[in-house]
Design a protein around this nucleic acid. Structure first.
Lengths: 145, 145
DNA sequence: TAAATAAAAGACAAAAAACTCTTTTATTAT
DNA sequence: ATAATAAAAGAGTTTTTTGTCTTTTATTTA
């Protein structure tokens, strides 16, 4: 198990890829994205449909169509992508899976996990989708399996 | 999705429960544990069999049998329980699921996740299984759903 | 306006995780 | 020794997640 679901991992990698690949204002097709991030094409298609409905990515059908992102979306925090796919359980849920866990009825690890969750949330809130373009362009970072 | 698998959540809650419930040197049966942590009894049985094989809990069959933990195990860090069930992927794996992710071929979030993973690992290494007994005895903390 | 293109949508299939039920084995107390 | 007890083990089922394949819809270019 990772921190994110597989679906969410693909979602994050795909928005990084789309952001990087369409910096010049172009669009990129599902096949190229799937290859670029080592994901199953049709599974990724579902994820992008979902992200599209939620306004994270844009798409156009037909010749020279494909996926892209507008400038305001590129500046959104990564937390928005995670929340769109995995929900906010990672930021708010109990580390031990207790639905009733709260300040007044805490699990034993309540305070410890509060810190962890805060770390994760803050990290994802302060990172924007587009800020990784530079390193991807330079080939310093990688999105393939 | 939580940080841990459901199996691991039950494992942690059960070791907390056993530690707390057998402080006086007694043993506690699977039914009482399952009730005490709101888990499916037979599913938990499998988990405890696994923890038993790995030396995290001890068990004796027959009348007045049940589960308990010896003093040295009670002082082990929670990280040992997590690693026994979920493995060390949480501490070492790539946040974006890339098997080839490394210092020389990092994913875009490599450094960010290094911090997160370190936080989680250190927290689980410095907490011992038995240190939560006090609050459980006082009824301050809770293990039930 | 017709053909080509590419995403959207729908319907499955496989694998993994979570959960259940029954039988067996070991231990203890009578 | 025997019966009662309780964990161990085995053999499933269900649900969720992940992945595949096909058909439909929208757009563009010729």
């Amino acid at each position: 198990m990772g921190i994110f679901s597989k679906t969410c991992e693909y979602a994050i990698r795909s928005v990084f890829f789309i952001a990087h690949r369409t910096e010049n204002g172009s669009r990129v097709g599902i096949k190229e994205i799937a290859t670029g991030i080592s994901s199953p094409e049709h599974f990724l298609a579902k994820i992008l449909q979902d992200l599209s409905k939620k306004g994270i990515v844009k798409s156009v059908k037909g010749p020279h169509g494909g996926f892209y992102m507008d400038e305001s979306t590129l500046q959104r925090p990564l937390a928005d992508v995670v929340e769109a796919i995995d929900g906010n359980g990672l930021f708010t849920g109990c580390g031990l899976g207790l639905v009733s866990c709260s300040e007044s009825k805490p699990c034993p690890l309540h305070n410890e996990f509060k810190v962890i969750r805060k770390n994760i949330h803050e990290m994802l809130l302060k990172t924007t989708i587009k800020e990784f373009n530079g390193d991807l362009n330079l080939g310093v970072t990688n999105l393939k399996k």
